[in-house]
Amino acid sequence: MPLRPFLIWLALVVAIVGPLAIAASSPLLAWRQPVYIIGGFAGVCGLAMLLLQPLLASGRLPGLTLPVSRRIHRFLGALLVAVVIVHVAGLWVTSPPDVIDALTFASPTPFSAWGVIAMWTIFLTGLIAALRRRLRLSPRQWQWIHMALAVVIVVSTIVHALLIDGTMGTLSKAMLCALVAGSALWVMIDMKRRRSGKRRSR
């Protein structure tokens, strides 16, 4: 494997495994029941998946062709919906009234409102992705809709994560959030550049 692709993949693995490992060694876990631990971890995994999603959508990751990359992107998208359900279900079992407050936007904690916004936007994205053919969306239309929804998902998830005092380490969480925002932004700029390049060459 040439050096550059190797370094890119290594950086990705470190960026994801690092924060996960720190969260897995949090002292808070000692005082939590298994359901709460699983629920919290599902959230951490969901955040980490948001780092991969834009990169996979762009097809710029070394060693992956665009079709393969997009297929993994779709699979991870479906997995993200599942992970969010596990996250919310785990919290629900741990403390139903707190989750009801969050879902009805009546919670005293602002982070939960951001989490609920991210949740519904992820569900909506999954729904539109599944119905894309039936809705007869052109690739161009779908790309715009998906990008707009993705911006909401990324921003609300990052705010949600940063406001939480939980198992993730403060620094590793901030770094992962910065990478998630950076990768989404870079891919959007990259796609725009490629599209305008295509138009010019026509």
Partner: peptide
């Protein structure tokens, strides 16, 4: 008291 549901 320890943090739960996002804040202690």
């Amino acid at each position: 008291i320890i943090p739960a549901f996002g804040q202690a």
